[in-house]
Nucleic acid binder design. Structure first.
Lengths: 138, 138
DNA sequence: CTGTATCCTTAGGGATACTG
DNA sequence: CAGTATCCCTAAGGATACAG
């Protein structure tokens, strides 16, 4: 039944993560949902990195298939799709914070404010809870 | 001079990380160095995922160019190269831990022992310091 | 605006032969 | 064993046209 094993290179957790979101675009969509509150197709398209329409559609499908996001139809807006993080997707928050912290330390161009990075370093667990609580409200 | 800006999609820290190690192979090499103590070409080749020789050579070059690893010649062994994590590479430890924790929660096949994952959850900072200290000794 | 479909180019990468 | 080089194929992805 579960013959996806043919596509699974190993049982390593790092490898599992790479096969789930290890490409150049997926984490950017996660970022847009997690930190920028984006929920619609056009909002993702508008991000600075310039994802193209076919790639965005492909990634949204893949993200939903792997359970990181859920889509719903917005009845107030011609049944247009709204994309949101699932709990599984929201649980990527510590990964995103760790990445942000690392980049802030080594990339002079990364635009994350120094104060934000300092807070990340000094109280990572507390900030995690805070952001998570904020996200749960929506 | 620094016209690499043409290859930089944005100044976002998530994007910076993706452009540094956001492919299907790089983090596996980091993992081998960080958690398995591998240092030589043949050791990376032998990992379960089956990286091919040209990709491995390409990734080792890229990793050294971006400063995540350093290579040295082993005078005791025909001047063969030894690859090790730089401080910048070792600082990816929190990223690796966060990924491992997430995969352990959602991938039934991930082989990380439950006890290890529980320890990650209950005392992530402490474990981070412990593993880091262990790595610094070499 | 929200997608889908198509065309086409390039980069990623598998297999393998080869050299020191 | 430690790499390099080559061949070739597939998947990723950019551009753009098109449809609801």
């Amino acid at each position: 039944m579960n013959d996806d094993s043919s596509r699974c290179r190993s049982n390593c957790p790092i490898n599992f993560a790479l096969e789930t979101f290890g490409d150049k675009w997926t984490l950017l969509i996660i970022r847009d949902m997690m930190f920028k509150g984006k929920r619609r197709y056009g909002e993702f398209l508008a991000s600075a990195e310039g994802i193209s329409t076919n790639i965005l559609a492909s990634r949204l499908q893949r993200l939903e298939a792997s359970g990181l996001i859920v889509s719903s139809k917005d009845p107030a807006n011609r049944g247009v799709a709204l994309y949101q993080l699932s709990p599984k997707g929201k649980d990527l928050l510590p990964v995103m914070l760790a990445i942000t912290s690392w980049s802030g330390r080594y990339d002079a161009l990364s635009s994350a404010p120094a104060a934000f990075l300092e807070e990340l370093e000094s109280d990572r667990e507390g900030l995690t809870r805070k952001i998570r609580a904020a996200m749960e409200q929506t």
